[in-house]
């Protein structure tokens, strides 16, 4: 290490530039967390009742299929299958959705029309939710970046403790035309980037909520409501049919077949 540094930095910089940027970023992160919880959670609108019903019936079928080992024997399973088959038959199914018998008859002749019944129920508020989530993520980033660029432009803020190649100069020393300057002297925007990556631990400790932090830092919004059927997708009838088909070909392996061994093992 050279005795005389090639560039002397004003000690006031660290107090008036480095620390404010960090503090602002931490505070904005906390604010964003609060805003997200405030805006996104309680506004959960009541989903479409038909859609929910349908999803839950499908879910019931899937659950039975996944836990097929609770059936005692194949005949037990078949009994259940027959029950489901009767319940989710086309006529029976449609009665939940369409009350008018004339319309029902029409649907029977042309089952693909059923999609049009469903598709105008597609919710606009889910789009709104996603939009809000994205806005809560992107607006603060843009604002802070603009703020950093506006306030702390055109001067060196810190020296990084490691060397970088000259390729980084265009990014970390933008708007500074000093060709010979070492690339480890960087401007404020690079401190912003270091913070952007490194603050996730701080958020996790301050907010005490790891799930939220990963959501903040990775900027992903999860879709929690069932997606409404789109115009080109499979009809409800087809969905139930395919599920029943899968139900039928399931290979039963009951968990009761070896239960004596396990009980004996346990109380040996």
């Amino acid at each position: 290490m050279a005795a005389v540094p090639e560039l002397l930095l004003d000690p006031a910089i660290k107090i008036w530039v480095l620390l404010p940027i960090s503090i602002v970023m931490v505070l904005v992160g906390i604010l964003r967390n609060n805003v997200t919880t405030l805006f996104l959670s309680p506004k959960r609108t009541v989903p479409n009742v038909r859609l929910l019903k349908e999803q839950q019936h499908l879910g019931l079928l899937r659950t039975y299929r996944r836990n097929h080992h609770v059936f005692i024997s194949q005949s037990d399973f078949d009994e259940k299958f027959d029950l489901f088959k009767k319940e989710y038959e086309f006529d029976n199914l449609m009665r939940h959705y369409v009350a008018d018998p004339e319309k029902l008859q029409k649907l029977k002749e042309n089952p693909n029309d059923f999609n049009t019944v469903m598709s105008d129920l597609s919710s606009g508020d889910m789009m709104m939710q996603m939009l809000k989530g994205n806005l809560a993520n992107y607006i603060p980033q843009t604002v802070i970046m603009y703020w950093v660029n506006f306030f702390y432009k055109n001067y060196i803020v810190m020296k990084l403790p490691f060397n970088l190649t000259n390729n980084f100069k265009s990014m970390l020393q933008s708007s500074m035309n000093m060709i010979d300057l070492d690339a480890s002297y960087v401007s404020a925007i690079s401190w912003y980037f270091v913070n952007l990556m490194g603050l996730s631990s701080i958020y996790a400790l301050v907010l005490n909520d790891n799930e939220m932090v990963t959501q903040i830092t990775q900027q992903t919004t999860q879709q929690q409501q069932p997606a409404p059927p789109t115009a080109g997708g499979p009809t409800v009838d087809q969905l139930f049919n395919s599920e029943l088909e899968g139900f039928k070909i399931t290979d039963i392996k009951s968990c009761f077949t070896t239960i004596h061994d396990r009980v004996l093992e346990k109380y040996q």
Binding site: L9, D10, P11, I13, K14, L18, S22, M158, K159, L160, P161, W191, V194, N195, M197, G198, L199, S200, S201, I202
Partner: peptide, 20 residues
């Protein structure tokens, strides 16, 4: 990666605070 980023941030910050 996350721990490296946190480490890097504190390293840079305190290096800057101590050395200037």
């Amino acid at each position: 990666g996350r721990y490296l980023a946190s480490y890097l941030m504190m390293w840079c910050l305190f290096y800057a605070l101590v050395s200037t």
